[in-house]
Design a protein around this nucleic acid. Sequence first.
DNA 1: ATTGGAATTGCAATCGTTTGCGGGTTCGAT
DNA 2: ATCGAACCCGCAAACGATTGCAATTCCAAT
Lengths: 341, 341
Amino acid sequence: MKKSAVTIKDLAKELGISPSTVSRALNDHPDISVETKKEVNDLAKRLNYEPNVVAQNLRSQKTHTIGVIIPEIVHFFFSTVISGIEEVAYNAGYTVMFCQTSESYEREVKDTKALLNQRIDGMIASFSKETTNFDHFKEVANKIPLVLFDRETDDLDVSKVIVDDYYGAAIATQHLIDQGYSKIAHLAGPENLIISAERKRGYEETLSKNNLRITPEYILPCFKGTMDEGYHAMKRLIDLPNRPDAVFANNDMAAYGAMKAIKDEGLNIPNDIGITGFSNWQFSSLIDPQLTTVAQPGVEMGRAAARRLILELEAKNETPKPTTQVLKTDLIIRESTRKEK
Amino acid sequence: MKKSAVTIKDLAKELGISPSTVSRALNDHPDISVETKKEVNDLAKRLNYEPNVVAQNLRSQKTHTIGVIIPEIVHFFFSTVISGIEEVAYNAGYTVMFCQTSESYEREVKDTKALLNQRIDGMIASFSKETTNFDHFKEVANKIPLVLFDRETDDLDVSKVIVDDYYGAAIATQHLIDQGYSKIAHLAGPENLIISAERKRGYEETLSKNNLRITPEYILPCFKGTMDEGYHAMKRLIDLPNRPDAVFANNDMAAYGAMKAIKDEGLNIPNDIGITGFSNWQFSSLIDPQLTTVAQPGVEMGRAAARRLILELEAKNETPKPTTQVLKTDLIIRESTRKEK
DNA sequence: ATTGGAATTGCAATCGTTTGCGGGTTCGAT
DNA sequence: ATCGAACCCGCAAACGATTGCAATTCCAAT
């Protein structure tokens, strides 16, 4: 069953020439005569020769492989990013190796080590929610190019691709205000993620800019970003003596949980309470009412990260200075904030 | 910046012993004295030595890498399968390399070749919708263990992990009948996929078993499985002189498109028309009305495929006979078929 | 006929690790 | 004092491909 693969030596023996000549012929080296090249290539095709990438990797100290570390595969946003990475990598002749941390710091540390041992040429990563120490990524960055996306940190001086979370939060909040809502609550994300902090900042500064007070009771943590968290947080908001009339959620899932809580209380969306999410998950346009949310360009983000990484990998001279690419977020206005005036 | 990695030779030179001794010490070979082992291990830790996996791979002719070929990453079902594969592979010490074919046959052929060249130890795959010729997978199966999941073919004598599509379709159809629907239509999947054929068969035989006629006009193709297709197919069904009172859709997306069409026509779900999907996409429990559907155990499927592959990879003696593991499907009854009696 | 130089090709080392085999040392037993 | 058995360890080849340098061939020019 398992045939032993054809090697360069087999071709050489068959043709009565040396392996080095075969190698050069296959690589179209100018030293080799056209006749020899033809002979070699013909035989290679006939015997179905395929170069052993592992041997080439060892020799060249390159693997043409990029490692990807993501928190969760079963997550609409991340799956679109992966898709973008894979697309660009494939077209540039790279293969992709990936690990999911399942939002575990410990797993993330192990994964970075494992990928380094695999001798990947470069890495694209997004932190787990637990991650507050970045030594493992510093080690990565010491050895190979690293590009971070979405979740990042100032601790690492590497290239990044992020979305304008502040701007996204600001337009979402402004939209709520423009719709006539004034008591706007916020379901906040994990504090150690810059993206959550930026969203919260966008929310708060937009309130201030519109001369609205920032009410601490209106800001509730939804660190895991689950429906359940959103549901219970919303229940608490509704029970407040002066309950909010709108919610800006850090993510769509929490928003969806909140919607459920609002409906369970017999309140109407968007007339009693308006709500917006963040991420534009696939389901957000399918639920009832459809959820207004901030769209993040996932595929584009993956593409940008991969393009940047490959650029750094193939930089001839010096390693390029790290860049930070900021992608625009878009407000998708749907029914959950379309208040009847 | 980029430090040159520590090799076994560096350790050997430092300790004044030979590389072979270092290698044996690191691998806990009985020939080496405990003192030497300790010395070597201590130094290795101190210098932060990490074995070069590429060199080990070349030497051992194994990569401890499994290749995965899937049609589409941004797809709830497939992302859960990947997640299951990754989980099992990681725990068994394997890394995962993946390619998405984007449902293109041509891309699938290229991907299989690329992964073979990478010298993966084994492969897990699910065909693209376009695939009708399986020569490229035969070549794979000739060289390494291959496990197919979900979409498979009788042309390949390899291990498979599938769900009981026939059974799923049968219980879904029977459920519709039990709810009092009698004119049941079917939005069919691509004919070259066994899974679609099985679902259709389950639908038709269940009708027959209940003494209901199979009406050809009630069976419409939705090969791509998009919302749009479902929408237009449903429009046509509604326009029939004798329009159906229920729909069994080959997948959730098409079902969702159909739901939209029904609502647009001013008809009520489930009272005028009942509907069930297939796959249990995440959004199916979130939409209004919630969609009754057949759940496929995605994560479990990925785990089973990975476990099976690793079993074949690590079989000491003969290559095991191919097996086909059939996972149960589950009917998730929700609002879209909960007719008021 | 001799030499020069271009055109081809081969030798051998290299990438980092593993491993069969053989060589040396130590120690107890006779 | 000698022998043999443990016990450790090193030599060198191997995995498959690439490449600097040297070697060979061939042909034309002197």
